[in-house]
Design a protein around this nucleic acid. Sequence first.
DNA 1: CTTAGGG
DNA 2: CCCTAAG
Length: 514
Amino acid sequence: MEVEHLLLEPQIEKDLSNNIMLMGSEHSKECLAIEDFTFAVDYTDCKADFGKIYSDAALIQKHEFVDSMLQGVNEGNLHGQSNFRSICPELFWDNDCAESLQVKCVSQNTSCLRNFRSDLQTKSIEIHSDAGEFSDLSNALNSPYDAATPDRDAFFFDDISTDQLPDVFRSTLGWDTSVEGKQSLEHHILFEFQNLTEINKFSSPSQCSSMPNEIDDEMMWIPKKLFDVVSSPFGSIFDTTKLVVGIGAEKPVHCGRDVRVGNFSEAHKTRLGDEDSAVITNKRLRKPTRRYIEETSDLKSRCCRETRGLVIQKQRGLHASRVQRRKNAAVTGNETIISKDEFLTADESRATYALRFPKSESRNNASEDWTRRVRNEKSGIRRKHHRLWTLPEVMKLIEGVSHYGVGRWTDIKRLLFATSAFRTSVDLKDKWRNLLRASAAQLHDRKQVGPHKKHVTLPIPQYVMRRIRELSAIHPYPRERKPRALLISSNPVFSRSNDNSSSGGDDDELTEET
DNA sequence: CTTAGGG
DNA sequence: CCCTAAG
């Protein structure tokens, strides 16, 4: 039943005008209001106010979109996908859990209204649109709109010093960045953070398993400019209506694993030889772990797709400074196994967008990063599957716990992490345990040590921490480590009352510890 | 197979 | 993140 209502047809249907109307300015408030404000309270008293940050952008984006749709309707010679998304950035739920309206910009000749994939809660239609006027996030952040909300970034980066930003980036997004400069980094983080959602969407196993490839082809083209800038503070995973609208691309970026690369093959064959790109070997250096095998087979079955891959040893982060990566050795996986398609994808993407998206290859095969290995490390036993938890994932986990309660990890995994093959239910459990510890430790830290503890780990926003604590009160973690004194003291007392005759004096030794 | 818990 | 006991 949980799933059933997710499969319901959204009200937004084939009628294009309805779609336009829905996104019109006069309806913006309804759009923002219909959602379940799970974090409404937090918004009001929290600095890291994503809602305020992004709601503005959302409105702007809606206006922009409507405008250009009305203006450039007849000029569409683009074949790109437009994604217009209005969701809460901290609620980057998988799209399985929400309805998505996808508006596609196609050429005039092929224009038609088409609704497919309704079984996936994704409404797709094709319209005319000239996306040339759309700006990407960088522009948006520097646009006149910025004046209205000059410091919306500041909400998020308030407490983060400049030299910590790279760490913040890495822990939030899961990979390193080479961007330098406070402003650039902040924008970069925000941008990548948003893009993350889009990637998750496209790596949905339901898509690859149930959708014909030819449709995937279209679905996977990511617009060159701004494909996911907008967010607004609404939505819980279970009743979120996402308006996914993006901007058409002149040159498509390939993203995700579920797509045919098409005629890129030749170009990539040559590219494979480039010293810059990668060294390819046919063998795997280590025997795969059990987990690796499981995940591989899991992916295989899910995607009904050939998974015969190449083993690619490649330097990640070609554009990042080595020094910086060395510092974060634990996260620096140099050995990556990805399928051929994915590699090609990444390469193409990097070649095209190296300047703007230095790490776009990481993002593009983010769904495959679970195959990453951590090499060397002082001969130490490294974790072969270390994949940092991103903030969106943490938010999903929290929402899952709030809906299911603690302990129903497989349920949470099924509904919220269905697209994340690398997150097992055990991982969710572990992460929750760690989150509890972190949230508890944070309280202590305030009183105790200095304010600067060096954000090596993901800087979880305060409101997230608060929510975790709320949940931990509602759903106490099973047997969360009691102080040892309690355990020791309780047992002897109990046994003494029942067992007077045999052991009288010995008990005192044990109970002394109280 | 899932969950809890130790490491 | 890994491993394993227990149900």
